[in-house]
Simulated assay, not measured.
Amino acid sequence: RLKQATFPIHKTLDTFDFTLTPSLNRNRFMTLAKGEFVEKKENVIFLGNSGTGKTHLATGLGTSLIQNGYKVKFITAQDLVEELLTANVELKLTAFEHKWLKYDVIIIDELGYVPFSKTGAELLFQFFSNRYERASVIITTNLDFTEWTSVFGNDKMTIALLDRLTHRSHIFLLNGESYRFRQSMKRIEEREGGRPRE
C-alpha cells in the first residue's frame, strides 16, 4: 500500500515538530490519523505558505492511514489535471474517475501553484464533485479560499467547489516562517561555527 500511494518522499507524523506550529492541535491531529474522518467521507485541507509543513503533514497523515488499513494515493494537482485532460481526450474519463474512487483517500498536493486551463479547471471540478460524500480528499494549498478563483478562473464554479470541499472538512491554517528556510539557516550557521539561532 505504501508503494501504491506513490509518496514523493517518506514522511511520518512522528518526525513533524508540532511545537513550531502552535496553531496545530497535536492531539486533534493524531485522532485524525486513526481514520474516522475517512469513514465519514470528510476532507482535510492544509492552507499555508510554502515550506510550512503542509506536504509533510499530508504525507504523514496518509502514511498513518495506510498503517490503519486504508488505500491512499498521492498526486500533485498539476499531474492530476494533466491525467484528467488525457483521459478526456481519449474518452476514458468515466473509467479514470472510477479507478480513483477505489482509493479511500487521495492526497492532492500543491493546489494553486499553477493556474489551470479552462478545460483543466472544469475537469478538476468534476473530479472533486464525483468524490463528494463518496470518498475523502486531503488537499495542500498555498492559497486562501478567496484566491481560488485565480486558479479555477470562474467565480461560480469556485464557489460551488469550495461549498463541496469545505462542507465536511477539517481545515488547518499553517502560518509562520518556512521550515526549509529555518533548517537552511541553521546549517549555514553551524557550518560557519556560529550557534544556531534560538
Rank of each mutant, 00 (worst) to 15 (best):
K3P: 07
Q4F: 11
A5P: 11
A5Q: 00
K11E: 07
K11F: 10
T12G: 06
D17V: 09
L20D: 00
T21W: 07
S23A: 14
S23W: 15
L24E: 05
L24V: 12
R26E: 15
N27M: 14
R28T: 02
R28C: 05
F29S: 14
L32P: 09
K34R: 12
K34M: 12
G35P: 07
E36L: 12
V38C: 04
E39M: 02
E39W: 02
E42W: 06
I45E: 04
I45L: 11
F46M: 05
F46V: 03
L47K: 13
L47P: 03
N49C: 08
G53S: 04
K54G: 02
T55M: 01
T55L: 02
H56S: 08
L57P: 10
L57T: 04
T59F: 01
G60S: 06
L61F: 08
T63C: 02
S64Q: 07
S64W: 02
L65K: 00
I66H: 08
Q67K: 14
Q67W: 04
N68I: 07
K71Q: 12
F74V: 11
I75N: 05
I75F: 06
T76K: 04
T76E: 04
T76V: 09
A77E: 06
E83G: 05
L84Y: 02
L84W: 00
N88V: 01
E90H: 12
L91W: 13
L93H: 06
L93I: 15
K99A: 01
L101Q: 15
K102W: 05
K102I: 00
K102N: 04
V105T: 04
I107W: 09
I107C: 11
D109G: 13
G112K: 03
G112E: 00
G112D: 00
G112I: 11
Y113E: 01
Y113R: 12
P115S: 14
F116G: 01
F116N: 08
K118S: 06
T119G: 03
T119D: 11
E122V: 05
L124E: 06
L124F: 15
Q126Y: 05
F128C: 04
S129Q: 09
N130D: 10
N130G: 02
N130I: 09
R131N: 07
R131L: 04
E133Y: 06
S136G: 05
S136A: 11
I139Q: 00
I139C: 01
I139G: 00
T140G: 02
L143S: 06
E147V: 07
W148F: 11
N154R: 07
N154Q: 08
N154Y: 10
D155P: 05
K156W: 13
I159E: 13
A160C: 02
L162Y: 00
L162C: 03
D163K: 08
D163Q: 10
D163T: 08
R164C: 03
R168F: 12
F172T: 05
L174W: 05
L174H: 05
E177F: 01
S178H: 10
Y179K: 03
Y179F: 10
R180W: 03
R182M: 10
M185W: 07
K186E: 15
R187N: 15
R191I: 08
G193E: 03
G193Y: 08
G194T: 04
R195Y: 06
R195S: 15
R195V: 11
E198W: 08
